[in-house]
Design a protein around this nucleic acid. Sequence first.
DNA 1: ACCGACGGGACCGCCCGTTGTT
DNA 2: AACAACGGGCGGTCCCGTCGGT
Lengths: 208, 208, 208, 208
Amino acid sequence: MKSTATSKGQRTRERIVERSAALMNHQGFLAAPMAAVVQAAGIQKGGLYRHFESREALAGAAFDFAVAQVRERLLQALQGQTNACDQLKALLQAYDGGAAEVPLAGGCPIMNTAIEADYADPALRSRAREAMSQWHDWLRRIVRAGIKAGQIRAGTDAQQVASVFIAAIEGAVMLTHLYGDTSHLQAVRQHLEGFIERELRVQPGEST
Amino acid sequence: MKSTATSKGQRTRERIVERSAALMNHQGFLAAPMAAVVQAAGIQKGGLYRHFESREALAGAAFDFAVAQVRERLLQALQGQTNACDQLKALLQAYDGGAAEVPLAGGCPIMNTAIEADYADPALRSRAREAMSQWHDWLRRIVRAGIKAGQIRAGTDAQQVASVFIAAIEGAVMLTHLYGDTSHLQAVRQHLEGFIERELRVQPGEST
Amino acid sequence: MKSTATSKGQRTRERIVERSAALMNHQGFLAAPMAAVVQAAGIQKGGLYRHFESREALAGAAFDFAVAQVRERLLQALQGQTNACDQLKALLQAYDGGAAEVPLAGGCPIMNTAIEADYADPALRSRAREAMSQWHDWLRRIVRAGIKAGQIRAGTDAQQVASVFIAAIEGAVMLTHLYGDTSHLQAVRQHLEGFIERELRVQPGEST
Amino acid sequence: MKSTATSKGQRTRERIVERSAALMNHQGFLAAPMAAVVQAAGIQKGGLYRHFESREALAGAAFDFAVAQVRERLLQALQGQTNACDQLKALLQAYDGGAAEVPLAGGCPIMNTAIEADYADPALRSRAREAMSQWHDWLRRIVRAGIKAGQIRAGTDAQQVASVFIAAIEGAVMLTHLYGDTSHLQAVRQHLEGFIERELRVQPGEST
DNA sequence: ACCGACGGGACCGCCCGTTGTT
DNA sequence: AACAACGGGCGGTCCCGTCGGT
């Protein structure tokens, strides 16, 4: 039986991770000074290093948390959608509607980390790669399932579609945060929705 | 005869900017330590601060240089292309073919800076915004010109097309650097080329 | 029982201030390098900046401490003196007798700071002004009290007397440190004592 | 025959000294950065070091110049005064009237240097000592001459009078610059003038 | 378990004096 | 003779991680 009981230390650790994730995604998982982290976490240095061996360990945990939080939001967006095309559109809507929410206050944690850790921190970069691969696999599986289910055209290259969606979304999220408005995200959403309807979705009466 | 003679200091300054641009685009315009910069530039700290008032000033100049270098490469790719659709395709090809070259060794300088300076450096962030806006305007003007010339369909939303191209390309460049391979960039290129041919280009015999 | 217990940090801070005051009054509150300060304070740079935000903050605290130390010595010299004229003479004696002691090892901190911070540090200069004003007020009050008590002649200009005493003493302290002997201080003391007896003190039998 | 012909280099050197004296007396003979000196002197570093071996050499020359300038002003004040008491009063008047003029913009150069160079620069401190001694000797000689001429009372201690005048004047100059007003200087002047009339000057009909 | 305090180190910017250039 | 350019070094500040105390 899986216990959900949490010790005091456990809860403290979670609080640290949660608050660090928000702060570090904004200020940078590498660039955020520990002083800011401990202040945001409501703890002191001595206490923090009881829960995490090193700054890198905390950054890793905070990154994972931030990624999980985003994934959670996207999963919720899929609720009730059975058609692959509708699922893809739901994901687009999720980004367009909630990009300003936490922890996206600092943009996509994966992209941020991919860029920030590019040179400085191979371990964190690896983590970003892995998270991105999972995100890519997820999209690819949605497309594949749609093909199998006769919802998406048979010849569709799932790998390519996944890449295009991720690239366009990530780029649009970056633009959204650079300018502070969502117009670019909306443009991408409209484009991809059109693409879904014209190129992916199996039209009624169309033979698969 | 117009002299292109440059003083010694001028040449040194250019050398610093050039080398700093490459290094800082890789290590980060904010994160790269001055020690690394001066080493790459082949100069000492004492000498560097004669040419740049501060680290920020150098970062700004290096950023501008990196952006100009990318723009130069893209301009060259447009050589000889008169049709707007072909111009867009040439730009895609330029990215796909030379993404690994300097100064793209560190990815797109605008995106890098947009993310790195998001919280830490408002001035640099402004610079990134401006550079991105120019890049966006450029694409929009190409599309608009294509519409006027009867090469691109009349109803096309130039603003939206520009946003989609930039978002997708930037995202793909990020993925390319995260994984070290260009497959995502190729996927985006194929997708956008298909989009150009199917949705933008005025077909022979089609009424504009 | 009222505890006078002080935390470890508190004691360290006091030690830093005390040692810095002595060193900075000698080497200059602005000119003394932090390396010398931390060495004298028996602490490392990293530890020092926990107690003081900046070098300026430390200089301010050290200055205040040095001034308070001088004031303390002068207050002790007044012990037991009830006649205003005798009080003035006691102050003169205090300077003449103990000018070489700490923290006067570097001369009067107020004068030192007034000159050193004249151009470089408006904040410290303000502090010096305030300390000097207090010192001036103190003397003026002594003279005024003497007039009220019928010990000093009625028509005496207290403000002027205070200015003369301070100017002469400060100048003499400067000369004393410049030459390393107290002859100038003694000259000033003799002059002012003669002035007190001839011009200030109400003679026995004299009507006020 | 003394030639007043000056070479170009000679004139440059004088300009440097003159401007440096004003600047360094304000910012500090040791504390003023060379960048400020060369800017004020209207010359470049490379050029300056052709005229002065080191920063110390320049500081010494500038100090001497500043002192000479003050001496010049005081000598002018003595013009036409034959009575020693009147000479002393003329000196007081000179200070009171022109304290704000150059190079006193930064206060008395001797006092400034005495304090600034106390710890940091023994050579400059020596220079200050010497200049102060000359100033002291000058006053002493005036008093001695007054005694001999029957203008000042026979028993007067010339050494002590010189010390009192210098101490009081220097202290008052310091206060004047600290507060930016001359009230303290006026107080000292009134006090010393009273002292001259009551204690020094041989009254008409008084036997010497 | 948590906090305050401290050591060591790295980093940026300044500043002096010299060297090549004009 | 003067200038621009550069090298080397220092000074102040920040920041991480640990250690003693509570």
